[in-house]
Structures are given as C-alpha cells and as structure tokens.
Design a protein around this nucleic acid. Structure first.
Lengths: 204, 204
DNA sequence: AAGGCAATCAAAACACTGTTACGGTTGCCC
DNA sequence: GGGCAACCGTAACAGTGTTTTGATTGCCTT
C-alpha cells in the first residue's frame, strides 16, 4: 500500500508533472508506469509508494486538472450583465477543453465514476459549478432568468449544453460540415433566452 | 491481416454477440480477446482473421450499437407538433443511453476519433442525426423555430443538450442532490423555446 | 474428379502492461 | 549512536494485444 507524506515530495512532483505531460498529449491509456518511472529516473515502486496504484496517480491528475479548471473559470470576471456572464463562462469552458483536451477528458469523459464518487470528488464538482450557479442567481435577481426554478437547475442545463457541444467536438462526433465553433455561442444564447421566463408552461 | 468474407459467418456472429454482451455490462476495457475466444470455444486468431484486431472488433460493435440507436430514434413517430417531436426524440435518446450505457459509451464517449473519422462512421453519424434534423425542419415550416439558421444548427444544439445531460449523468459528474431526470425535459423545453424566434440578436 | 492452393483456425512465443513480493539502503527518532 | 520503519531498486507474477508458425480445411482450377 501507500504511505503518503514522508520523504520525497520533489519526486512526487516530478512524477505528477511528467505524467500530466504524457496524458496531456497522448491520453491516459498511453500512460505506462514503467515508462513514466524510467523518464523520471526512478522505479515503478516509487509510484506505488506515493500514489498506491495507477488509479491513485490518475486521481491526483484529476485533482490537478480540476484545480486548473476552477482557476480558469474564476478568471471570468462578473459584469453587470449576468446572462452574458453565463455565456462568457461557457466560452471559457470551451477554451479550457480545447487547450487541454486530455485533462478535460480525465475530468469529464473517462472518469467512469471513479474519483467523483469520493467525498473529495464531490467537493471538486461543486466548486467547478459554483461560478455558473452564482451567475444564474445574479441573473434571477436581475430578472433575466425565471425564478420558478432553483438556480442550480438552470445552471446545470447551461453546463450540460456547453459540455455536450464540447464533448461532441472533442470526440469527433460532430456531423460533417458543421463546425461547432460557429454554433457554440448561438446555442448558449438560445438556451439563456429560453430560460428568460416561463416555467413548465409554454408562454414566454 | 484480415480476410473478411469467406467462411464462418456463424462464428463471427457468436463473437460479436458475446463481445457485445461483455461490453454491455462491463465496458470495453474489461473485454479480453483471450477470454472472449475461450467463451466462444475458439482461439484468439479467429478474432484476428475476422476483425483484424481489437479495434476492428470494437468498430463492428460500434456499427451494431449505431444500428440499434437509429432504430430506437426511428421508432419515435412524428406528430403534428414538431417542437414536441424534438422533445420526444430527446427522451428516446436518454432512454437508449440509460438502457445500454456501455453501447452508448462506445458510440459517444470512448470513441476518440477512431471509427467516426472513417467514411462509414460519418455516414452513421448523419443517419443518427437525420430524424432530429427532419423534426426541426418541420418545426421551421410550422413557425415553431427561427428560419434564420439552417435546421442542422438548431438540431445540433438540441442533440448536444441531450448528450451533455445524459453524459454527465452516466459518468457521475452531476452535482450532488440534482437528479438529472427531473431537469431533463425542462432543459429541452427551454432550449426549444429559445430557438422559437430571433437570430443572433437578442429580442424574442 | 483429383490435386494444388490459399484461406482459416489452433498453439505458442513476444513484447508489453499493472501489480506484488523481496532486500538493501536510508533517514529519523528515541 | 543504535534500532526501526519507511522508501525505492530489482525481479517475479499474472494478465493483456499481437505476431508467427504450422496444420487442417474447403474451394477452385486443370
């Protein structure tokens, strides 16, 4: 098993950085513990001492990816137009995903209920959602969104729209001849417009 | 390499069915060619003769999953209310995904630009999109959607919203305490409402 | 109709993978 | 300083996908 917090913090960092680099441009399936250990001039048992196993290493990468992601969203300043803030958060979401496709994949695609089900993972998810939920709440106060629903519900739908478009784009499941970049902001605008008024009933 | 269309079509079917069953309830990572061959009372080289390699086998599973998916969507009849047809297509989409999570994963999650980039894969994608595009086009004619955009764009946004919610649900990335099932139809309704009128400019 | 030939499947070897058991060295604490 | 636990290098284990080898088989041509 793993004993975590004694000696070589430096080795731990080197392993994490090298692993992140490999995953960053070749994916988690291409990450070999043997190769990783050789790259950092150590041996596989170091990985097992520090992270327990490969899943533990990937969990650490998950946390690192989440940290960067939260920072990216936090860098989106809030203006006096909350509805537009939601759009801008969505744009930042896509920018992060396109800039770090493999880290994004760790966060949202190949997680398969491994890290998120832990208490720490749940906390990370809530932290990632927070800026969007806040923007929606401000938008409700400003009369830009319906107040018949919890802000979390509206935020989830915006999150899912952004995630859906980005993930179709990254996995190559977009229909040919339809560049997603051109539809992206338009879709977010349409969704925001749809949440402007009206609950389950149909009138705007 | 593989020579495809000679002898044992029966063996090919047994392999596909068994592989589909395993992937269906344990995922592609848990699919071992050795175990698969043993289950069907043959040897690994049969797999290589028939499918080339594991990727080829998974490509065949992709086509099978796509076939089932297209059939599921085609089973959604079109009514006189196209906007509502879009919602019902979205519901069918989620039903398929929840009933066959691993096949859905093959189609949209772990594809990583393997099968979709082929010509056959592109054709499959277009075929899957078709019912939704048709419904949107009917909705445009009925005045339920803006006519300032191609129906493909509106359809893509609805597709992405459904895909986003379902994929967050399946991978466990939903924020705690927010069952997606309750927000699902509401989100689709909001999006349809948002596409009712107005192009890039903001007025409804 | 019989022989030759290419294709198909079985068995085993190869090059990997993650993981675990074993030892020696190292650093800390009493 | 000495005892002791922890860390990490080496090597073995179990499993994977793939390739090679070889034998059987079924079809096709002469």
């Amino acid at each position: 098993m793993a004993r975590l917090k004694t000696h070589d913090e430096a080795l731990r960092l080197r392993l994490i950085n090298r692993a992140a680099a490999t995953v960053f441009d070749r994916g988690t399936a291409a990450l070999s513990l043997r190769q990783l250990a050789a790259d950092v001039k150590t041996s596989t048992s170091a990985v097992y001492s520090l992270f327990g196993n490969k899943a533990g290493l990937l969990a650490s990468l998950y946390q690192e990816a989440a940290r960067l992601f939260v920072a990216r969203l936090a860098a989106v300043s809030s203006t006096g137009d909350p509805a537009n803030d939601v759009i801008r958060l969505g744009v930042a979401y896509r920018e992060y995903a396109l800039a770090n496709p493999h880290l994004y994949a760790i966060l949202f695609l190949e997680s398969a209920a491994q890290f998120e089900s832990t208490e720490e993972g749940q906390r990370q998810i809530v932290e990632m959602y927070q800026p969007l939920v806040d923007a929606v709440r401000r938008g409700q106060r400003a009369g830009q969104f319906t107040t018949e629903l919890d802000p979390e519900v509206v935020a989830l739908s915006c999150w899912a729209a952004a995630h859906g478009l980005v993930s179709l784009e990254l996995t190559g499941n977009q229909p040919p001849g339809l560049p997603i970049g051109e539809s992206y902001e338009r879709t977010l605008h349409a969704l925001v417009r749809g949440w402007r008024g009206a609950g389950p009933a149909g009138q705007p």
